[in-house]
Design a protein around this nucleic acid. Structure first.
Lengths: 229, 229
DNA sequence: ATTACTAGTGTACGAGTAG
DNA sequence: TCTACTCGTACACTAGTAA
């Protein structure tokens, strides 16, 4: 069920082929003979690989009629994205900034709640050089490539801000990436490890109230560059 | 020596690790035990993989003192880039245009020679919808990420223009990508299969003389979008 | 038509060790 | 030290075939 161990090279290449066959997002009809063909394997070997991937929690198989449908699970997709991210860094280098563009919206104020917690303040100051304004600027990313790029942030190291306890409950560690907002203001992207990601949202923090400083209201466009090292 | 057959998933992952260890560009000291460690294998298995990769023509091994240095060969680098390009297309989609920006320069007029050949004209017309002006606009790409992007074009399918003979010699097939020059003029990128690539150069062709139409001279900047569909 | 069992086989691995 | 040989084993593959 779990996916703690790194997938093997063969598992990874199988997952990639499955994505190519359309099983990346939702279910796709993938016969074991088709899969075998694209992988250069027998039908039997392809069937076995699918079973192994299911046991590793990386795909979901459903028997439907006279065939089966396959879909990557979130850990399966994550494995491919991690691989892609590593490859990208090796090939393209890690120095270029990531550019994001989205529209301002009012979120659930969950990020705002986190950054307002006293237990994080000292670490924000020492890691980022500022204590964030108690609120986040939420940007909704529209373009699919922007969402993919945002998903990469989940997998990159970033600046770790450790968690803490306040006696009542435990607050997990959060992660930041230094950023430049609207081409001028220093700030950071906040990435909270959640059970359920929404990678179409970028949460921006800064020493000041960004909405005021930039005169932004819901629906306005805003650009952010994420800077590395 | 040759590399006609596709590398296996394991060969590919080994090549990627080797690049990560610095053997992508030039030679790097890579001990078989280090390689084994990062691959989760024994020293012996890593050694065997390196030997296999050398037999496949994907790496070059040189015994030096009490160790060895390893470097990927051009086919080895190519294999990794092909893999990366495929993955990129699967994950990020193939619909987005590639943006290029470079500076105009006067090349060796090799591309100009090719497009002026009568034997290609008919195919250019049917594939691209125009017969190119007998000359190319050469752009020198400066940013490393632009060069990487340019290298991807070598590996993508593109629009094939078949080769021909004129009795004296054989002219190989060339490859094009539809493009938009300076945000307005229709044209194409010309990719000639050469023994020695220079991926920092973009050769642009169009139905008109682009230098005249855009009033460009050497050293001027010019943007080109490569379009896919 | 499918999937996936069983049996047999090739091969990639780790251990030991020589150069 | 290093690389890389041989050997024995474990496993992933193909073929055949049942459901």
């Amino acid at each position: 069920m779990s996916a703690k161990t790194r997938p093997t090279a063969q598992q990874l290449s199988t997952l990639v082929k499955l994505m190519e066959l359309g099983a990346g997002g939702s279910d796709a009809r993938v016969s074991s003979s088709t899969l075998g063909e694209v992988l250069g394997l027998s039908q039997q070997a392809a069937s076995k690989r699918l079973i192994e991937l299911e046991r590793a929690g990386l795909v979901r198989r459903t028997h439907s009629g006279r065939g089966l449908t396959v879909a990557l699970t979130p850990p399966g997709r994550r494995a491919v994205l991690v691989h892609y991210g590593e490859l990208k860094q090796i090939i393209e280098g890690r120095s270029r900034p990531m550019l994001f563009a989205g529209k301002v919206f009012t979120g659930l104020r969950e990020g705002a709640y986190y950054v307002s917690l006293k237990g994080y303040a000292a670490h924000f100051r020492s890691s980022l050089g500022f204590v964030p304004f108690p609120g986040t600027l939420n940007l909704r990313l529209a373009a699919p490539s922007q969402v993919v790029q945002r998903a990469q942030l989940n997998l990159l190291r970033g600046i770790e801000v450790p968690g803490f306890e306040d006696g009542r409950r435990t607050y997990g560690p959060v992660k930041c990436f230094r950023a430049e907002v609207a081409g001028k203001l220093p700030g950071a992207i906040l990435v909270i490890e959640r059970t359920h990601y929404d990678d179409s949202v970028l949460e921006v923090i800064a020493p000041v109230n960004l909405r005021e400083a930039l005169g932004l209201k819901d629906g306005d466009g805003c650009q952010v560059s994420v800077l590395f090292d």
